[in-house]
Simulated assay, not measured.
Amino acid sequence: MENHTLTHEFPEFVTKIGELKLNDEAFRKLYVNYEEVNALIQHYEEDGFNHTTDEHLNDLRKKRVHLKDEIYSFLMEG
């Protein structure tokens, strides 16, 4: 099972992620959305019975990538 938490994905931005979570509402919303989608994917992947369809799981993975791209753009600003 791969670790897709943002601090694992962007270890060079751990401090900036923490600062933005505290001080930027738009970033905080992206962060929370990413973490929720990531947790849902992990739940489905770890569940031996997989209570979702492959299509739904793939859609969630695409959403996670999109959110990660948005977050990366935030991190690269300023």
Rank of each mutant, 00 (worst) to 15 (best):
T52V: 10
V32G: 06
P11K: 01
V14W: 06
G48T: 08
L40Q: 06
K68H: 02
G18K: 02
E77M: 08
N3W: 02
Y44P: 00
D54R: 11
H8C: 07
V32Y: 15
Y34E: 02
D59W: 13
D54E: 09
D69I: 07
V14P: 02
G78W: 06
N50W: 04
V37E: 01
E46L: 14
F74R: 03
K16T: 03
T5F: 02
L6T: 00
E9R: 15
V14T: 09
V37N: 02
E25K: 13
F49W: 11
N33V: 10
F13H: 08
L20T: 04
D54V: 13
V14M: 08
V65E: 07
L40G: 00
Y34P: 00
L75S: 01
D47V: 07
E36C: 02
D47L: 04
L22R: 15
R61Q: 07
T15R: 15
L6G: 03
S73F: 13
F27G: 00
F13Q: 10
G78A: 06
E77R: 10
H56Q: 12
A26V: 14
V32R: 14
I41D: 00
E46G: 07
D59K: 11
N38W: 05
H4W: 12
I71L: 04
Y72I: 07
L22K: 15
E46M: 13
D54T: 12
T15H: 14
Q42K: 12
G48I: 05
L22A: 14
K16R: 14
F13K: 14
M1V: 09
R28G: 04
S73H: 15
N23P: 03
E55Q: 11
V37R: 01
Y72R: 14
L75H: 00
T53E: 03
E2Y: 13
V14K: 11
L20Q: 02
H56C: 10
L22M: 10
A39E: 09
E45L: 13
F27S: 00
V14S: 11
N3A: 05
R28I: 05
G48K: 04
E46T: 13
V14N: 08
V32T: 12
N3C: 06
G48E: 07
K29D: 06
E46N: 12
D24P: 00
E9G: 00
T5L: 02
N38F: 03
D54L: 11
N50F: 12
H51E: 08
E19H: 14
M76A: 09
S73Y: 15
Y31N: 10
H4D: 05
N23C: 03
N23W: 02
A39Q: 10
F49K: 10
T15V: 09
K63W: 04
F10C: 05
F49M: 09
N3E: 07
D59G: 06
L67N: 08
E77Y: 13
Y44N: 06
E45P: 01
V32K: 15
A26P: 01
K62H: 09
H56R: 10
K29G: 02
L20S: 03
R61F: 01
E2F: 15
F27W: 05
R28N: 13
E2A: 11
P11S: 04
N38H: 11
T15S: 14
